[in-house]
Design a protein around this nucleic acid. Structure first.
Length: 774
DNA sequence: CAGTGAGCGAGCTTCCGCTTGACTT
């Protein structure tokens, strides 16, 4: 083969191969092929921070294959992405494949079209070493921060924690949002809404309005209603204003995650998984991008499709440019590969996500929507306040025909905007009813996963390829949890004026009900407090923006990368050493009081396995008693009474089948123990008040489920079972599971066959590996 | 899954960004 072209993604390789013809072989390197070893710091701090790179274990085969292919080629074209990471990937390829510089060429393109690719081939260049240095600075900085801060946390707080430039700021956002919510004081006000009839004798046409003023107290609201009793209501102003709305730009990774979350209820990782499938099946362009750009080819395809479907006047092509800090724009925006395909044949999730992408892309090239806003002001003769009616009429739908972006804002159930009846100044209206409704101010909402991504992108923290992994990391570390919250009932005043009667009633509403929002945990809060106290500069919201600026200077040749690192590392490392030596354990310990029975001190603090209470002093001769906190309890709100309750476990609640039933709280929450077996309580069971009857119910439920799961049992060997699991049938023997070969029918296996499968199964690899990924 | 928590000390944990399978048992 004459030419070897190397790109990052295999799907991209396949597409490009078709553009270039038979003289070119296109292969993929699957992203970075070398990195710092995860086992060590791998940076020679005293030798100019020189990094020790090694071929990543999962890339040895790729490197071997590419080295061979390169040897057999006349020219190697490095076509990795056109950004800092892409440049570094190319440089690492030169090093790892030991490429001969004279036959190596670097090319870039940021859209996968035939023109872009063939043009790139005619404009090769050398590797930009300054840009590579900027990437090395980024890599080394992240490693130093992550691998020096994390061990400090292990020593001062608890093992296996982590900190980093990106994740720690993400946690901070969630912790601080929770603090503002905690501080928030809801206040109430009275909103007045009124409906009027245009004609005294018929109720055919009704106009809904809201008073321009909101009252702070019930008395003021009632006083106003009193005034309305004998008032005349007269139109004193009508106003019509044209309004134009423009479509949102096409999707980037971050906006796709947000809209898929709002419109389809997808988690950030689900969106990425489904998008990956669409990408691999050739239905959409690359899904990890921060670019808003559409290729000319895509725009003309969109134009054609819009004309076919909606007509010429719905077309308005546009080029969007990114306003996001640090956007690197190595790809196109996320769009359908073929815009004349509004749907794809695939599973339900893929179909829905694809349609969303199709609509958003098409809408971005459509005409503005034209609306007319109408405002009618109504005078109240006995009061100085006015009622206002707002209407909105779509004159031309434009892009709204296809797509409207959603928002995260909580909607106040206001007066719906629609067409208003034709009214003139001095028209008299007839009061039908006027209602004063008590309303409450709401705190800022907690972050959803996607809303957090949006915030991170605004701060320039993280990249399209890391948003989803970062969000799963901070959940895996148990710094934050994704939770629902059940709403609470709340009473509110509802005062109506109908005819001449003012009637006051109390109504109830459900408030504060939320789904899948991020809450900080005790550990998350504690780690954040620690970092804030000792390393506030690193978790400053502007830290990334500040270092990004320096990376840019390195790329521009105005700064030397390891000098920049040196300037950061000096004070940073000194602070690490100082904190290590001079600060005490940081475990949020709080004295709650004394146990009334033993007079021993009771504390709450973070232990090796999370939040716990402790009875007795650590330095006393007698070993203290410990107990874990229940789900939903928190380090900073736990009371002495809560703690005393926790020390009641384990306790007996009755007997079942001649065996004692005991309740306790363990590693995985509250459970009932019966005959050496454990049965988890459900979230709605309170371990302090659970009855014998309920415990037995739980045991029988679990037994029933076990039974349903069982496909086959053997009298001869009680330990061996054929079970039905998440990934289909499998064999379970002494708590170890074995895969059933695809050509075997699970239900008809004999005991001997099962034992043969167990014997033939490959021996388990080191257990450590499994634990670390858990 | 499993009922731990001091202290002793071994040996472990950890970052961000670029990419997919292999695999879950």
């Amino acid at each position: 083969m004459k030419n070897l072209v190397i790109v990052e993604s295999p799907a991209k390789a396949k597409t490009i191969e078709n553009f270039l013809g038979k003289d070119y072989s296109v292969k993929s390197c699957f992203g970075h092929v070398r990195d710092l070893s995860p086992k060590f710091l791998s940076i020679n701090v005293d030798e100019g921070f020189s990094p020790n790179y090694e071929i990543s274990p999962d890339k040895t085969k790729v490197v071997k294959d590419l080295t061979k292919a390169a040897k057999e080629s006349e020219t190697v074209w490095l076509a990795t992405d056109e950004d800092r990471e892409g440049e570094a990937i190319s440089w690492h390829l030169v090093e790892a494949l030991k490429l001969d510089e004279s036959k190596t060429k670097r090319i870039t393109f940021h859209e996968i079209t035939k023109t872009a690719v063939t043009e790139a081939i005619t404009n090769p260049r050398a590797i930009d070493k300054k840009l590579v240095d900027a990437q090395q600075a980024r890599r080394v900085l992240d490693r130093l921060v992550g691998y020096e801060l994390s061990p400090l946390l292990w020593k001062k707080i608890k093992p296996a924690l982590s900190a980093g430039r990106v994740q720690s700021v993400a946690v901070r956002l969630i912790v601080e949002r929770e603090e503002t919510i905690k501080k928030f004081q809801s206040s109430s006000y009275y909103r007045i809404i009124a409906s009027f009839e245009i004609d005294e004798n018929s109720n055919a046409t009704i106009i809904n309005t809201e008073l321009s003023k909101r009252f702070d107290t019930k008395e003021e609201a009632i006083a106003f209603l009193e005034k309305c009793k004998n008032s005349e209501f007269k139109v004193i102003n009508t106003e019509k204003n044209p309004l134009k709305k423009s479509p949102a730009p096409p999707f980037t990774t971050s906006t796709l995650q947000q809209e898929a979350s709002r419109k389809l209820g997808f988690s950030v990782s689900k969106t990425m998984m489904v998008a990956q499938q669409l990408y691999e099946s050739g239905n959409i362009t690359y899904m990890r991008t921060d670019s808003l750009n559409l290729s000319n080819l895509a725009i003309s395809m969109a134009k054609k499709e819009i004309i076919t479907q909606f007509g010429e006047k719905y077309v308005k092509t546009r080029k969007f440019t990114s306003k996001i800090k640090g956007a690197q724009e190595a790809h196109e925006a996320i769009r359908p590969t073929y815009l004349n395909k509004p749907q794809v044949k695939a599973d339900a999730s893929q179909k829905r996500l694809y349609e969303l992408i199709w609509k958003r892309t098409i809408a971005s090239q459509m005409s503005q929507a034209e609306l007319e806003k109408t405002t009618i002001t109504i005078d109240v003769s006995n009061a100085k306040e006015n009622f206002v009616a707002r209407g909105e009429v779509i004159k031309f739908d434009g892009f709204l025909k296809v797509y409207l972006e959603s928002t995260d804002d909580v909607k106040e159930n206001g007066i719906e905007k629609g067409i208003l009846p034709p009214l003139k100044i001095n028209d008299i209206l007839f009061r039908k009813n006027i209602i004063a409704e008590q309303k409450f101010t709401n705190h800022t909402p907690r972050y959803s996963e996607a809303a957090l991504v949006k915030k991170m992108e605004e701060l320039g923290i993280g990249r399209p390829s890391t948003y989803a992994p970062t969000i799963s990391t901070i959940q895996k570390r148990e710094y934050v949890v994704k939770q629902d919250k059940i709403g609470e009932e709340r009473n509110y005043d509802y005062i109506s004026l109908i005819s001449n009667d003012i009637e006051e009633v109390q109504k109830t509403e459900i408030t504060g009900q939320i789904k899948s929002k991020l809450f900080p945990t005790d550990i998350g809060k504690l780690v954040n407090d620690f970092l804030l106290q000792y390393f506030d500069d690193v978790i400053d919201y502007n830290f990334t923006a500040k270092v990004e600026k320096e990376f840019d200077e390195i790329a521009a040749g105005k700064k030397v990368w390891n000098e920049m690192i040196h300037e950061f590392y000096g004070p940073f490392h000194a602070k690490i050493d100082d904190t290590l030596k001079n600060s005490s354990k940081f475990i949020g310990e709080r004295l709650l009081g004394k146990d009334p029975k033993t007079d021993k001190n009771i504390f709450v603090k973070i232990g090796r396995f999370g939040p716990m209470v402790q009875m007795g002093d650590t330095d006393s001769e007698e070993k203290p008693r410990f107990a874990g906190l229940k789900n939903g309890q928190s380090l900073d709100t736990l009371t002495l009474d809560d703690a005393l309750d926790l020390f009641k476990f384990p306790y007996a609640i009755g007997t079942f089948e001649d065996e004692e039933l005991t309740v306790a709280i363990g590693r995985f929450g509250p459970y009932v123990k019966h005959n050496k077996l454990f049965f988890s309580l459900s979230k709605t069971d309170d371990p302090l008040t659970i009855t014998e009857k309920r415990a037995i119910e739980i045991i029988e439920e679990k037994r029933k489920k076990e039974k349903e799961k069982t496909i086959k049992e053997f009298k001869e060997n009680k330990n061996l079972k054929v079970l039905n699991g998440k990934w289909g049938p499998y064999i379970s023997l002494n708590k170890t599971n074995y895969k059933i070969p695809k050509d075997k029918d699970a239900a008809s296996l004999s005991l001997d066959e099962c034992l043969k499968i167990v014997d033939d199964a490959p021996k388990k690899k080191g257990k450590k590996k499994y634990k670390s990924t858990k």
